[in-house]
Design a binder for these strands. Structure first.
Length: 687
DNA sequence: GTTAGGG
DNA sequence: CCCTAAC
């Protein structure tokens, strides 16, 4: 068949080339148009779930010393009702015994000495970073950190995990003072139902999962970048200068095995191509899910988790913001059960004014809470049949913060504050999840929505969803620090100042100043998950309180399984489109030259021969570019857009295209120089 | 992992 | 650029 693409350029005496290859179009291309329909993978959820598992595992293995056997090995077993009930009891008793603890759980964390935390974190982090060159290890380290924190909980030192937890809690308070209050009230009045609270107190770790503040030691170098716009400018400058030779750090980092000469100070993020990562993730999840069910493969889970994370980072790489904001769909979850309070107050968002970092916050919160609850109650009485909800707390979307070790505690605080403010400032919305599905119709009555006292409130959850739609670029997270450096040493040049090396080529990774929109990422409407997915994980098996908040259906495994199953994760959250990088004339030149030699159909060779150092150009990119070049060359100059390509080049494009269309490139012995020769001859990188 | 094409 | 199908 003749490809419809065949061109009749009549160039160089070439006749309209007939495309030799059978049109792929013939090949059956299934109408996968239903992609939209595809359930969207809620990466975050998944992340949360995985993270939870990981934490659990780590805890079980890493710290036997963790609080009174709260953490048990049998993590994977989904928390079923039975367990929950048991847990409940346990919790109850616990709550009584450690009432103070519980209290602290709510707010107290806020009061934890941040300095200590910081120090701890730094130290821990460092250790982890150094010790591990590999992701897996890193993970472990992190986990351990978490554990250690836990251990030290009573002491001054609370690891980052704790910090995060605190943060989350405090935030929660803010956000939903009303709701929380209720919870508290319940506690006091009805201990039975206060499971949620208890659980909260008990396992900080769990909380971590959802709201982590990661403080990375490596950050010192990076921090500046994050926060400082100037560096970017510099980078940008570089970027502009960059030509073919330039390596896209993004792409590179992932491999870590590329030439060591590359310098990529700032982006530890691996990124060998998100595409790959994505794929990996996807496939991994799919595969892993089932396994997790069975409880076993943490390693797998971990890996996935990390990959996932990487992906996130990758995606955010260009963004500049002091903080990374993630989690969109929030981990929040809520619990619902019937107690005294009415749910009406739930949706009220708290006043921003409250400061998290303030030690006194807890007290304030309490007061507020009580006030709120009172109000609510009165309200409640007025009505007849009500559905009562008690929301323990909302989780704050996960935040990742990086601060240099040398940063002051004050700056850390500010950073956290910024992160929180960013989230709150951008608006938060509450989502209602019933039986794993989001209830979107705001106009429906509870009844209509199937939310009634008699129904399974267990499956009801609330989520806090940051609305990033309004996020301003400045708010957007800045580049991520290397969360997972492939190599500890990789980032040799720690100084931000020297992103590039002299040779034009393989160095400097420069990040385009592109601002990614978070919107896409954040569109979480697709994210459905059972309310407690995140939470439960940890709870279920390892912790007695698992029951906690939201007794949810058996979920862990399920949730995991479900997520992965999604055929196409799509770019729902993280995967953003790569930033567009128009080919420069030089690149086009190189491409044309390579194709002239190698012909079409050998994109890999073209890549290797002429763009090996241009990591951001994949062979697919080259192929696509060629495609567009051919098209461009075939249209009138007036119709061309973008940076004008010298006609001379376009002519060559047509010429080569014609030629190779006639001569199967693969069969051309004489015309197919070895890659080696190509390299030496016109490797783009050389310039 | 590549290549070819459609989107 | 992305995504897929077909290799």
């Amino acid at each position: 068949m003749v490809s419809k693409k065949r061109l009749d350029y009549g160039f160089n005496g070439y006749r309209a080339p007939i495309i030799p290859r059978a049109p792929r179009s013939i090949r059956r291309r299934s109408p996968h148009k239903n992609s939209i329909e595809d359930s969207k993978l809620c990466a975050f959820e998944l992340l949360a779930a995985v993270a939870g598992k990981l934490l659990q595992e780590s805890e079980s293995s890493a710290s036997s010393s963790v609080a009174n056997g709260k953490f048990q090995p049998g993590i994977c077993q989904g928390g079923n009702k039975k367990e929950q009930s048991l847990d409940d009891k346990a919790l109850k008793s616990e709550s009584f015994d450690h009432g103070s603890c519980a209290e602290s759980a709510f707010i107290p964390e806020i009061s934890v000495p941040e300095q200590n935390q910081l120090e701890n974190n730094s130290a821990l982090e460092q250790t982890s970073v150094r010790a591990t060159s590999d992701i897996r290890k890193k993970v472990d380290c992190d986990i351990k950190l978490g554990t250690s924190e836990v251990k030290n909980a009573d002491g001054n030192t609370i690891s980052k995990v704790e910090g995060s937890i605190c943060f989350g809690d405090s935030l929660n308070c803010k956000v939903e003072g009303g709701a929380e209050m209720h919870a508290k009230d319940d506690n006091n009045q009805i201990i039975d139902s206060s499971l949620a609270d208890t659980s909260t107190v008990k396992d900080p770790i769990e909380e971590d999962v959802n709201t982590n503040l990661l403080i990375k030691s490596e950050g010192s170098v990076q921090l500046p970048l994050y926060r400082d716009p100037i560096p970017d400018a510099l980078l940008q400058k570089h970027w502009n200068n960059v030509k073919l030779g330039i390596r896209d750090d993004d792409e590179n980092s992932f491999g870590c095995n590329k030439s060591s000469t590359r310098v990529r100070p700032f982006r530890p993020q691996p990124r060998i191509g998100h595409r790959r990562i994505r794929k990996m993730l996807t496939s991994k999840y799919r595969k892993v899910a089932p396994k997790l069910k069975g409880c076993g493969l943490y390693s797998e889970g971990i890996r996935s988790f990390y990959q996932y994370r990487k992906r996130i980072y990758t995606q955010e790489r260009f963004q500049q913001a002091p903080i990374k904001k993630r989690k969109l769909s929030d981990h929040t979850f809520a619990v619902a059960y019937h107690q005294d309070t009415s749910s009406d107050s739930i949706s009220n968002l708290p006043e921003k004014g409250t400061k998290i970092d303030n030690e006194s916050s807890s007290a304030n919160i309490l007061q507020r809470a009580s006030g709120t609850s009172a109000t609510v109650r009165g309200h409640q009485k007025a009505k007849d049949s009500h559905v009562k909800f008690s929301i323990k707390s909302f989780r704050v979307p996960e935040l990742y913060i990086e601060v240099p070790e040398t940063a002051s505690v004050g700056s850390l605080k500010r950073t956290v504050m910024e992160a929180v403010t960013a989230i709150l400032g951008n608006g938060i919305r509450v989502g209602v999840v019933l039986q794993g599905k989001k209830v979107r119709d705001d106009n429906r009555t509870l009844q209509q929505a199937g939310i009634s006292q008699s129904s399974n409130l267990d499956t009801l959850g609330f989520t806090l969803e940051p609305s990033f739609s309004h996020v301003s670029p400045s708010m957007a997270p800045k580049k991520l620090p290397s969360a997972l450096p492939c190599d500890a040493d990789q980032e040799l040049p720690r100084s931000p100042a020297t992103p590039m090396t002299d040779s034009g080529i393989g160095n400097g990774a420069v990040d385009p100043p592109v601002v990614n929109k978070f919107d896409d990422v954040m569109d979480n409407d697709n994210l459905n998950f059972s309310p407690q997915t995140p939470k439960n994980e940890p709870n279920d098996a390892s912790i007695p309180d698992s029951k906690a908040l939201v007794p949810v259906p058996p979920m862990n495994a399920e949730a995991l399984a479900i997520v992965p199953v999604n055929p196409k994760p799509k770019r729902t959250e993280i995967s953003q489109r790569r930033t567009r990088r128009p080919f420069s004339v030089a690149e086009v030149e190189a491409l044309v030259a390579a194709v002239e030699k190698l012909g079409t159909g050998r994109w890999r060779d073209v890549k290797l021969g002429a763009f090996e150092n241009a990591d951001h150009r994949t062979y697919v990119d080259l192929k696509d570019k060629w495609k567009t070049l051919v098209h461009t060359a075939s249209i009138s100059p007036q119709q061309r857009r973008g940076e004008p390509v010298p006609q001379e080049l376009l002519d060559r494009v047509l010429s080569a295209h014609s030629y190779w269309s006639q001569h199967q490139s693969k069969q051309q012995g004489k015309h197919t120089p070895s890659v080696e020769s190509l390299r030496s001859e016109e490797s783009v990188g050389v310039a």
